[in-house]
Amino acid sequence: MTLTLSRPELILKLIVEQYLLDGQPVSSKLLADNTQLAVSSATVRNTMMALEQQGLIRSPHTSAGRIPTSAGIRLFIDKMLQLQPLTSFWNNELQRKLVPQLPVSLLCQQAGQLLTNLTGFVAIVSAPKADGRIVRQIDLVRLAADRLLLVVIDEDGDILHRVLHCEMAIDNSTLSKVLCLLNAALGGGGQWQDGIERLGTIMRSETALCQQLLQKVLGQLSLDELQQHQPLVYGQHQLLLTPEYQQNSALQQVMQMLERPDGLMQLLDTVTHDDQPKLLLGKESGFVELSNVSVIVRRYQTQPKRLIALLGPRRMNYARLIPLVDACARQLNLNLNRRQASP
């Protein structure tokens, strides 16, 4: 599709595209030499002055070059950006890595890791588990006289397996008793969190080795429940490598926010009210920490609500990355629907 733009819009478009490409201020001479314009340098300079007065571009220092403001980039994205088709390599990677046979947790992990590997930016995925997680099976398997393997399977097919190291040898009667207590607390399709509470009550009434074993199991179950309800964040180290990060200390606040992303997830939750990709550009987020970054986010499931996001510096290749986030969300949605439809 060919865009019909006024001269100021075309000049803004060229400035934004060049800035997103190399991050350098764009001079009037560079623009005047562009064959799309066919106007004099004086005309370009006058138009750039008007764009600056409108708050769409600014001068980062005393040079003649200009860079776009957040408002300028927003206008470019809303009116002038032409999204590019997904590359065959990226599409093949999505098809190969995100398959419906994977348990939900592993599917979410694969999506986040793949997104950051393909882009070099930070990927954020909703917590794999929603409230009301159901335990389908729990078992203790002897590995040695003083070591046991704890195995717990939930309703999504995700498996928790942890080796429990004991201070003394465990006889068969103790192992059988502990396993019976675990099934009483967590078996029969009960909710994970409720089972943890029941197990805590049972543990307090036991003594000696049984109590020690139950305490170890309780610790592993509680830790897994906490981890499964935390957002997944991948590629924080990639942010450290960007030139923008090294030149702007404010971006270091983003790292602190990613360590405790609850506020960010609440923000993303409010903007993902449909199945279209959304873009938060700098200060639009309302968070000071995000004033120098952009976030592309897309909901991929409604019940429970799950989303996937890509966070990076404002100088992103939006034409390629918005379709990638959209395609990743679509693939996740397709796989989750297939899982639910399977017997």
Rank of each mutant, 00 (worst) to 15 (best):
M1H: 10
L3M: 08
L10R: 01
L10W: 00
V16S: 00
G23D: 05
G23C: 07
A32Y: 08
D33V: 14
T35E: 11
N46R: 11
N46G: 06
A50V: 12
H61E: 12
R66L: 06
G72E: 06
K79E: 06
T87G: 10
N92Q: 10
L94E: 07
L94C: 02
K97R: 12
C108P: 05
T116Y: 04
L118T: 01
V122G: 01
V125E: 00
K129Y: 11
R133F: 07
D139Y: 02
A144V: 09
R147H: 05
I153E: 08
M168R: 14
M168T: 14
I170R: 02
T174Y: 00
L175F: 09
L181K: 09
A184T: 11
L186D: 03
D194W: 01
Q211C: 03
Q211D: 02
Q215N: 14
K216I: 13
L218T: 05
G219H: 04
Q220C: 02
Q220K: 04
L221S: 05
S222E: 10
Q228A: 11
Y234R: 12
N248T: 12
Q252K: 15
E259Q: 11
L268F: 05
T272Q: 03
H273C: 03
D274E: 05
Q276P: 02
R298G: 08
T302G: 02
R314A: 14
R315F: 13
M316H: 04
M316N: 00
N317D: 11
Y318H: 09
A319M: 13
R320V: 10
L321K: 02
P323I: 14
R338Y: 13
R338E: 10
